[in-house]
Nucleic acid binder design. Structure first.
Lengths: 240, 240
DNA sequence: CATGGTTGGATACGTTGTACACACGAGTGA
DNA sequence: TCACTCGTGTGTACAACGTATCCAACCATG
């Protein structure tokens, strides 16, 4: 029986000895640990302790730690909601912002092995893809282009949020609270590098940029540019 | 003395006892291991064995495994070359394709902790950023917009390549060689999910799409859309 | 030659994921 | 009612990992 089959069969009361452990409970508790203590705190022993069972108990329900991570991803992706059918652009924008909000709420999403984060097919992720693809289809866009748009947007969102979270986590690790402080801290970290004089344009950015500390602005600008480009390509279909 | 300072001082022949180990050699050997055996093979013990020294020897030159990963990233990013100054779009396109080529050659880049992969400032990464930012500056683009463009393009590239590599690795793990074979394999893996009937549009894609197995096409289409959108926003500067 | 700092070696510890054998307890067929 | 079986949780154990710590060998300098 597959992992997702087990997930779909919550209590199964008429079946054999009823377990105190279920995949749902494992997923919920694991997400709780990661939310408060980071992905590094996800340990089969820690998980078992928080579940109130022996270290090996969870292995009756998952094949290993990888399964736990997969369950966690699926569990939180259920939180992303798309608005009822509107135009494709509104849907894709909602998808992008929804996933970004999800990642900001569960920062560990950007820390897990990239393979799993980006590609793994879990029910909740597929449901999200289904909603987005259906919206694109509703706009009369063919299958190849639909998937291309979906992939491109999610690729941008993953890259952008990883970047944003990377900085945010670095700041948290170092105890920096605002942009100015972190620039000072970063500067001291990069003093030697910058003093090599090899990066004049980079230094210029550090001096001149005004939107340095506004990740929302940065995310939106990039996303809008991307959606603009997609829109023109849809209205004027390209060759090949 | 910082890690990068040590990196810049290769032999330092007039200094104290000369080491058989250098950060360069550590980086080179580590990259070799990861290239042939994957990131999972990077172990301080394995690294030491391939270096021909005792397990703890490397710790005289790096603070820990994290430093090794950082060195590896920096080492391979030196491979990315940008063409001599042309227009900004050509430069950004070269940057995107160069990084993609790099990732395809060193797939482990997508597997390391995302924080490190996306944000870490190493000399080679900063040199690349410097080149790209200088090209944008040369086109008369202001500091905020330059950095925004750079971040957006690299975000897309990282997301897209992670996605592409994720699929490629899954295929390699399962021994699938072409698209058709992997679709069969994937199908059997998702049979239960698809049989729930919850993903009709997704199924339609699997049946209809023609460019499913052309990652280069997918990458280019998304990148061109993104660059199109950026171009229109540069020529018609937006408010705020 | 003596000295001090730098390099590599050896040993050891705590933590991790997980294999394995066992114990319990409820459902089923006699 | 009584084995019997199967699904569940427990206890113990092991190999592999990152790395702290102490020690020996070396070289440039006085």
């Amino acid at each position: 029986m597959s992992l997702w089959e087990r997930l779909d069969r919550p209590g199964d009361p008429a079946h054999q000895a009823r377990p105190a452990l279920t995949v749902q409970r494992i997923a919920t508790v694991a997400v709780g640990i990661a939310d408060t203590n980071g992905l590094g705190a996800i340990t089969m022993r820690r998980l078992a302790k928080d579940l109130g069972v022996a270290p090996m108990a969870a292995y009756r329900h998952v094949e290993g730690k990888d399964d736990v991570l997969e369950l966690m991803v699926d569990h939180v992706y259920g939180e992303v909601k798309l608005p009822a059918a509107t135009d494709w652009r509104t849907t894709m924008r909602a998808l992008a912002c929804g996933v970004r909000a999800l990642v900001l709420e569960h920062p560990w999403l950007t820390q897990l092995p990239a393979t799993r984060a980006v590609f793994e097919l879990t029910p909740a992720r597929m449901a999200l893809a289904e909603r987005a693809l259906a919206a694109l289809r509703g706009a009369g866009i063919d299958a190849d282009t639909s998937m291309s748009i979906f992939r491109t947007v999610t690729a941008y969102v993953h890259g952008a949020t990883s970047n944003e979270l990377g900085l945010r986590q670095l700041m948290a690790d170092q105890g920096w609270t605002d942009g100015a402080e972190s620039r000072t801290g970063l500067a001291s970290r990069m003093t030697w590098l910058l003093n090599t004089g090899r990066y004049p344009t980079f230094e210029r950015y550090i001096r001149e940029a005004a939107h340095k500390d506004d990740p929302q602005w940065q995310f939106d600008v990039g996303l809008d540019a991307l959606l603009d480009g997609i829109a023109t390509r849809i209205s004027r279909p390209r060759r090949s």
